[in-house]
Amino acid sequence: MKITVERSGGIAALTRVWTVQAVTTSEKSRWQPLVEACPWDAVDDPRQAPDGQPDGQPDRFMYSIRAGQRRATLPETAVTGPWRVLVESTRTAAEESRPGGGEAGFRR
């Protein structure tokens, strides 16, 4: 299972991408609960907000999260609870760059 966290927006408008691959059984058993804990079906696409500001705050980050076939887009202020755990875990693993850890970079 491939997990990708893409963070766009901010005053600099640079898009950062963190990716991890859960390939082995132990990796899947570590990541599956983190993914399952997130309420994927309860998320509205914030890009459909009438004024473009789902949290009423310009220059905040926007997160697009993918895990296998699942995907969700959340404003920064909604990245709480299990979403926060998944995002932070992905970022940490990707930045450690250990074997199977993943990749961290910018979308150019």
Partner: peptide, 8 residues
Amino acid sequence: YDNAFWDG
């Protein structure tokens, strides 16, 4: 944290 913002 890589940002600065006005929260309203």
